[in-house]
Design a protein around this nucleic acid. Structure first.
Lengths: 193, 193
DNA sequence: GTCTATAAAGCGATAGAC
DNA sequence: GTCTATCGCTTTATAGAC
């Protein structure tokens, strides 16, 4: 029936979406199969280590995406452009609030203990990259660090609240507000020069 | 061995803590027993409806706590006092960032669909109560609503980030910042009168 | 690579002794 | 109220046919 030869790079995003929808504990093989159409046999073929290997590889893939699309631009690109790119990419990535942050979700329960370093690094790197970008745009280091932490924190909060009240607009509003606050921070810092 | 006659009001908080630590899907009976010391037999004695009943009753208890300690003061008490009480109670309740928000955690995965109204009401009531308080303190309605949404969102984000980077100070900082922002909002609104 | 069969463990839930 | 025993069912994981 499904004789298509798939590659791991093709099925990993599908499995990731199942984990996002179900959480780590809720993501049983039968449910993953139901959501992705990938049979149990295929799943074990690609991930002999089972669920733990799946989640670990998903976290690596997520990190790769953020390095390419968010962290590196922030750390090395033109600050203003990198910043507006971040708001846009973040909005796209989380489907305007309709998609959960898997790393944040993993952090909430006992799953955290299994992927502690991946979870920790995801957030600290994001915050540091953003602070780095603001610093290169002329913002005081302490202010940059504070705003960066706040921004990442607000993105997570926006995702939680948007899902909780079932209104993606909450997340969209949050991104807009953060962008405006960043703009104000830069405007406040640059003219005196 | 454990011949102590317990009441439901005594064991509910214990079970709630297990759900907080494990999440809904991760909270199996064996794990709940391990964490709380309450045997499977006792759990079913108090909750014939199983896990679903447990979670539902926990959500009711959580709501009751917030009505008494947060919502009612905000809605009916002296605004300034109710506001500073909220920051203090919120910090206490979430153990300064060391305790997860169960309602927020439930909102993240498929568990949300089972407790949709409880989750929705928890957040909207909190936001509305806070906006009501700010409004009674003289803040413009639109500004009050925006700040209230932001504040609740930041509390959730603070809890996620604090757990993710394993640093409770993130949450403490967030509460302090929100309190300062609220103060500024009131100071900005009141003098013109 | 995909599927089915199957084993062993863990799951939610019930019944009954104490 | 508490515990143990036990029932079905689902789970993870493996093995082997195709």
């Amino acid at each position: 029936m499904t004789k298509i030869i798939r590659e791991k790079s093709e099925i990993l995003p599908l499995v990731a979406e199942a984990f996002r929808a179900l959480g780590y504990e809720g993501a049983s093989f039968s449910r993953i199969t139901k959501l992705t159409g990938i049979s149990k046999g295929s799943l074990f073929h690609f991930f002999p280590g089972g669920k733990e290997q799946m989640a670990a590889e998903i976290l690596v893939e997520i990190n790769n995406w953020f390095v390419t699309n968010i962290y590196l631009p922030l750390e090395t690109g033109e600050p203003m452009a990198a910043l507006s790119l971040m708001w846009a990419q973040t909005g796209r990535y989380f489907h305007s609030g309709g998609r959960v942050c898997l790393v944040g979700a993993f952090a909430m329960d006992a799953t955290r203990d299994y992927f502690q370093v991946a979870i920790h690094d995801y957030f600290t790197r994001w915050i540091q990259a953003l602070a780095c970008c603001l610093g290169r745009a002329g913002v005081d280091a302490a202010q940059a660090a504070a705003f960066a932490e706040q921004a990442v924190l607000n993105i997570q909060g926006g995702l939680v609240l948007a899902r909780a009240v079932n209104d993606e607009a909450v997340f969209a509003r949050t991104l807009q507000r953060l962008a405006a606050e960043a703009e104000a921070l830069l405007a406040c810092q640059n003219p005196p020069r």
